[in-house]
Amino acid sequence: MNQSEWPLWEVFIRSKQGLDHKHVGSLHAADATMAVQNARDVYTRRLEGVSIWVVESKHIHASNPDDADAFFDPAADKVYRHPTFYEVPDSIKHM
């Protein structure tokens, strides 16, 4: 029952109001069923959610922090990519 033998899982919870599952943390579990149960016990004790996703952490591929400059900085001065230069007619609601 050694914790280090169990894989790590990332937990995503959808709240009652939420439309999307949000990453809330991680935990250890032997398999997917146990991971969902553990997530229920660890992350939904205070009515945080109505739906749980878990995914084994090893299946998540992340961008490299060393690439951050090349990846993200070039977007900083591309203000024209934001759709903020349009006049929204008064009849269009909820924009």
Partner: peptide
């Protein structure tokens, strides 16, 4: 508990 997750489960 044997691991944190089960410690919490039993407390719940």
């Amino acid at each position: 508990g044997p691991i944190l997750e089960q410690d919490l489960a039993m407390a719940n």
